[in-house]
């Protein structure tokens, strides 16, 4: 039978520092386990495609440039990814990794969310091929990002 039972608490809050984090101005590190943006290491990949089979959201595609020399380009759709870590778990060669650094991925269009990982020359080759008339449109002239 009290009225205003939170009185003590709110009074204390008035003189206490607010619990608010000053986020966009002060950026606190995320925990190391954080599942942020996916990174791919083309050097370790063997092209087994296990990650692609297990991806629940169709977020990754592996484009084989040259199977024998193990040259692969991974097209990663950030806008589809659910950051579930399954691909990382499935990969037996540790070539995938979810970053704990890059999790601020907001942007004003969806174009930058299509990311290419691979060796520079392979990506260039692919993009040039895609830019040619009559090529598969879905590859799109997207700005490439290097791993």
């Amino acid at each position: 039978m009290t009225i205003g039972s939170m009185f003590g608490n709110i009074l204390r809050s008035l003189f206490k520092k607010p619990a608010t984090e000053n986020y966009p101005f002060v950026r606190k590190d995320a925990p190391a386990a954080l599942r942020g943006k996916l990174f791919y290491d083309p050097e370790k990949c063997t092209g087994c495609q296990l990650c692609i089979k297990d991806c629940p959201a169709d977020a990754i595609e592996l484009i084989v440039v040259d199977k024998v020399n193990k040259r692969f380009v991974m097209r990663y759709h950030m806008d589809r990814c659910t950051f579930c870590d399954q691909c990382v778990q499935s990969c037996r060669f540790n070539c995938l990794n979810l970053s704990d650094e890059q999790w601020e991925m907001a942007s004003l269009s969806r174009t930058p969310m299509e990311v290419y990982y691979g060796r520079d020359e392979d990506i260039k080759f692919l993009l040039e091929k895609a830019a040619q008339p009559g090529a598969d449109d879905s590859c799109g002239p997207a700005p490439a990002e290097q791993a």
Binding site: I10, L11, S13, L14, K16, P18, A19, T20
Partner: peptide
């Protein structure tokens, strides 16, 4: 602002 401070935020 006062309400925010009472609620322990910046406001």
């Amino acid at each position: 602002k006062l309400i925010a401070r009472y609620q322990n935020r910046v406001g």
